[in-house]
Amino acid sequence: MTQNPVLSINDLSIEFPVYKGAVKALNGVSLHVNEGEIVGVVGESGSGKSVTSMMAMKLLPEGSYRVTQGDISILGTDIIHASEKTMRTLRGGDVAMIFQEPMTALNPTRKIGIQMTDVIRLHRRLDNDAARQLAISLLKDMHIADPESTLQRYPFELSGGMRQRVLIALAFSCNPRLIIADEPTTALDVTVQKQVLMLLKAKARELKTAILFITHDMAVVSQFCDRVYVMYAGSLVEAGSTRQVLHAPRHPYTRGLMAALPELATPGSQLQAIPGNVPDLSRLPAGCAFASRCPSRSDKCNQKPVLTSIHEATTHQVACWHPALQEELAV
């Protein structure tokens, strides 16, 4: 394949120094997002999804973390060694971010219009009027009925879904090549969530914007993503096309996540959650981090498995000594 990655993360390990030790939040993560591609990162709470997305834009508080190995490259820029000035032109310019909480992600005391034109003018040589016109057309694209009056409003005057549309419009305002969306719809109710995701996807396809889409929701991944990475305790355990991973999951953890989906459980049967808890990231085992919860563990699991293709001619990768066989699949 000759695609260019807009984002590529190579063997990245991040830890947070804490009293007497370190929280190893990311452990050798490698992932990439190609031009125009929508790539999901899915995993339970605390698996390191947000750390990955914040680190990609170098937004973790300075001094709070250590990069112990690996690198990140966005559009050819070495992020880990990039200056603050370089990062500032990337942020909101070529790379936009959308966060989980639309209720609090906008400045409560500034009008929507000012918040949008501020960002637009930070990255584009436009006068105030042109920036306003652009903001109006962006809001229109997000199917906001009366964009002019929306610009005059304060965030508290808009519903959660409306605010998230504003934030998505804002994310597209400078024609980004990549959008990093960290659980952008988790706080919204299901119908609104679906609408907002459709708008986001349509616009991204139209502009060939790549998206790194962080979520804990497999159902959302199946509707939204081209490819998906499954993350567990700061490591990737499975990767592949959405079809491969969701319809033929190989890693016991992925299979557990799939089984926990309500729409996949047979009526009357219990929701099958994965027993056990995410391990303490400051005391990770040397081997597979999932072993303690794994139904098919063996002595071999005391060694850490690496992400490898399940056979030569596929992009489907799994990090497991005992991957499930395709024939066993229920779905």
Partner: peptide, 15 residues
């Protein structure tokens, strides 16, 4: 500590 501060930073606003 607020979320909108993170948004502002993510949009490229200076420190």
């Amino acid at each position: 500590q607020e979320d909108y501060i993170r948004t502002a930073k993510a949009n490229g606003t200076s420190k």
